[in-house]
Structures are given as structure tokens and as C-alpha cells.
């Protein structure tokens, strides 16, 4: 198939977006064993904040394309900040009071939060913009056609795709450094393994959990902005399907395992696109999920998941 390399490339791009979101699921699951259903919506909020910034900049006469790096930075920072604050608030008010309740109750609370966020964004945007389906200003308009020897047709690469991948890689590296090298990251891993013992070492578990939500949500918010610039239109409902996919990516990578979630996200993105090339776009999700289920049958704890230990 001639377009296979192109499909692979596009799959990588969407895969990096999934990976950034999947990290949020996996980090929260790591410390709380909770599927944070609202995470997809935090991603969506990030997309809206970033888009609003780009729209506002255009309104002030600064078209994003004039200084794309500045525009992207100005969109990313508030989006990450708002998403982080929202994530921490969700943890504080929707999960922490229920932490000792049965898992199902927290799960219901999470689903409730997800609806609340979606409808609030819709409400706010309807009041503010008079609509809630927002077109996203273009930031990096260039498209490159790269001829690769041996390939029948040149590869099409959007400048924006490169930025998405680059930003995602940078964030993943920073996150990995934070988790592996810093005191906070150490405490996070300790809490993930055994919160009671961590508390006995003087680790304030609540703070670490809040920090986990903060970091995961900030990355989700950034993913939202990157997604918005890449896929051009956003609605308050984009978080659901993408959230499910990112969550699946996290599970396939081995939930609780951060490198695993990167791997799972990228794998899902590539499978989806390349699979879609063979079986048709209609079945691309079916195909991708079938492969992922197969992975889980042979490796139930996920690709990089190894910890199958009881928590006391």
C-alpha cells in the first residue's frame, strides 16, 4: 500500500497526543487506583483555554501565524495552568471526600464531574462566544512535502505535526525527570507503591496526590492545546472518545507505568491509522482495539506493567 508510510506518520502524531493524555490516567491510577473519568474533560478544557487565547490574540491584532512560537507558548501556559488547577480541584472536592468509599462511588462521582465540566464549558462558551463549537486559529500553517527515496509519493508533513510531536517529547522527558530524579517524584512513586508506609516516612500523601493531579492535568491541558491546533475544531464533547482511547492506551502500556502509557498511546495511534488503511476508516477503532485486546490477553498487566502486587 502506497500510503502506508504516510499513515504511520499520522498515527505517530495522534499517538503522541494520546500518550500525553494517557499519562494523566496512569499517574492518577498509580497513586489512587482510580480511573479519573474527568481527565478527558480536563484535556478538553485545556483545548478551550488555549483556543480562547489564540482567538483573543487574533482579536488584539496578533495573528498566531505571525509569531507562532509566541502564540503557542501564550496558549499553552494558561491552558496548562487552568487544567492543573481544575485537576487539583476535582481531586480535592470530588475524590478526596470519597477516598474511603467503595470504588464504584468514586467512579460515579468521576462520571458526574465529567458531565459537569462538559456542560459548564458549553454554558460558558455559549454565553461568551454565542456558540460552543469553536474553530481553532491556525498556528503553524506550513505543509512540507518530503520525498523519500524508495517511496512512490512524497510524505506530507504538517509543520504543526512536528510541533505536536516535539512538544510532547519535551513534556515526556521533563515528566520522566521529575518522577525519577526529584524529591516530589520519589514521593510520588513511594505513595503509588504504599501510601501508608509513605505517610509513615513523613510524606504528606494528600499533597502528593494533589501534585499528581496537578502534573497529570497540566499535561492533559497541554495535549488539549496541541490537539486543537492539529485538528482545527473543538467542542465540549471531544474529551470523551479521546479520553477512552487514552485510557485504553494507559491500560495497554501497563496502567500505573508512565513509560508504558507513552508506548501505549503511540501504539494505539499508529495501529488506528495503519489499521484504518487496511480495513477502512470505519473499522479503524475496531481494528485497533482488537489488537489491544489481544495484547492484554497475552500480557494482562500491559506491555510494561509488572507490578501485580497487593496493596495492604
Amino acid at each position: 500500500m502506497d500510503i502506508l508510510p504516510q499513515l504511520f506518520l499520522d498515527g505517530l502524531v495522534v499517538g503522541f497526543v494520546y500518550a500525553l493524555i494517557a499519562v494523566g490516567y496512569t499517574m492518577v491510577y498509580g497513586v489512587l487506583e482510580l480511573i479519573n473519568f474527568a481527565h478527558g474533560d480536563i484535556f478538553m478544557v485545556g483545548a478551550f483555554v488555549g483556543t480562547e487565547v489564540l482567538v483573543a490574540l487574533a482579536g488584539w491584532g496578533l495573528r498566531a501565524t505571525a509569531d507562532p512560537w509566541l502564540a503557542l507558548s501564550l496558549a499553552l501556559l494558561p491552558a496548562m495552568a487552568v487544567a492543573a488547577a481544575l485537576g487539583v480541584a476535582v481531586e480535592r472536592f470530588a475524590y478526596r471526600p470519597l477516598r474511603r468509599s467503595p470504588r464504584l462511588i468514586i467512579l460515579i462521582s468521576a462520571i458526574g464531574v465529567s458531565f459537569i465540566i462538559e456542560d459548564l464549558v458549553r454554558l460558558v462558551e455559549t454565553i461568551h462566544q454565542g456558540k460552543f463549537v469553536l474553530p481553532v486559529p491556525t498556528v503553524f500553517p506550513d505543509v512540507y512535502h518530503v520525498s523519500v527515496p524508495g517511496l512512490p509519493s512524497p510524505l506530507t508533513i504538517k509543520a504543526n505535526s512536528l510541533v505536536v510531536v516535539g512538544a510532547a517529547v519535551i513534556m515526556m522527558v521533563v515528566l520522566t525527570l521529575i518522577v525519577s530524579r526529584t524529591r516530589a517524584g520519589r514521593a510520588m512513586r513511594a505513595v503509588a507503591e504504599d501510601p501508608v508506609t509513605a505517610a509513615l516516612q513523613g510524606v504528606d500523601v494528600d499533597r502528593i496526590i494533589a501534585l499528581t493531579f496537578l502534573i497529570g492535568s497540566a499535561m492533559g491541558g497541554a495535549a488539549g492545546v496541541l490537539f486543537a491546533t492539529q485538528y482545527t475544531t473543538i467542542t465540549p464533547y471531544i474529551g470523551f472518545l479521546i479520553g477512552i482511547k487514552a485510557f485504553t492506551a494507559a491500560v495497554v502500556g501497563g496502567i500505573g507505568n508512565i513509560p508504558g502509557s507513552f508506548l501505549g498511546g503511540i501504539l494505539l495511534g499508529v495501529l488506528e491509522q495503519v489499521g484504518g488503511g487496511f480495513v477502512g476508516a470505519k473499522f479503524q477503532n475496531v481494528f485497533a482495539f482488537c489488537v489491544l485486546v489481544a495484547v492484554l490477553i497475552f500480557k494482562p498487566s500491559g506491555l510494561l506493567g509488572q507490578r501485580v502486587q497487593e496493596k495492604v
Binding site: R183, V196, T197
Partner: peptide, 18 residues
């Protein structure tokens, strides 16, 4: 009850958290 996935040094460093 050690943090099994952390190194010995990291375990001690978690103790130093405070």
C-alpha cells in the same frame, strides 16, 4: 514494607522527605 520498585538509596531518601 519497603518501596520495592525504588532503589535502596531512594527508599532512604523518601525517609528524608521531611
Amino acid at each position: 514494607r519497603l518501596f520495592k520498585e525504588l532503589t535502596a538509596l531512594e527508599n532512604v531518601l523518601v525517609g528524608m522527605h521531611l
